[in-house]
Amino acid sequence: MGTLRRREALWAYALLFPTIVLFLVFMAGPLVASFLISLMHWSLLSPPRWAGLGQYQHLLHDSAFWTAVGNTAYFTAGTVLPRLVLALLLALALNRKMRARNLYRTIYFLPVVSMLVAVALVWSWLYSPQDGLINYALALVHLPQPAWLSSTRWAMPAIIIMSIWKTVGYDMILYLAGLQSIPEHLYEAARIDGANRWNLFQHITFPLLTPTTFFVLVVSVIGSFQVFDQAYIMTQGGPGYATTTLVYYIYNNAFQWFHMGYAAAQAWVLLVLVLGMTLLQLWGQRRWVFYQ
């Protein structure tokens, strides 16, 4: 008995070994290294100098960093909820029996698999104040035409709109999977009891989708906090600091200005922020997520 268990354990470790090695080399190692780097002054080529908590102290007084945190929160607030609502509506619409259903699903999913860099470029043309398609459409219906990416007020909303368009298809697919896992007999029983369509949604669909909603929420908050490409391609963080996001600022510090220590410290603040928010959501989900 004892030898069998030991042999089994040995096999288990043997099979886990590649994964453990990969985890240590590509996850745990860099994690520890980045924390150590955050305690130093290091410009990549010159030998690192010890800084202790100096980088973190510097962070406290760096107004650009806090602006970047604020912008990232703005972006997150602007994208997460609309993504959830739109994705749910799309999923409900495309879950019905209809013609060319798969075609529509594909169309909505296309932006997700398109390269963000290319998409961001195309959108910056759409947003062109003089000859962009969006302002052309706005002019037709006599609405004001903002300067979009060149305006301190509208640059962030422009990026938010584009990002929602880019990612909503992914959330939609998750919702579709969630919808399809709801057993049909629940609906049948409710219909027999005289429930109308709104009742069905309110008492069956929505509660049984809460695990999906929770998953989408967690993933999209984490994703939103890491927003980078849009700011990098479309606005370079401007005008002014209007679209300087946390990861864009980290990138600049690390790979444009070569302050590796300072960038690592910011990355750790980002980690703590994301971790904190995820824990908060995990704690909160007990109150509203309903498992079958």
Partner: peptide, 21 residues
Amino acid sequence: LYTNEWMDKVTKQLDLAWLGK
């Protein structure tokens, strides 16, 4: 040494002046 960094900050501020903000 840190031209790129301070120029980035200067440009971001001057942008606002050029925008009339």
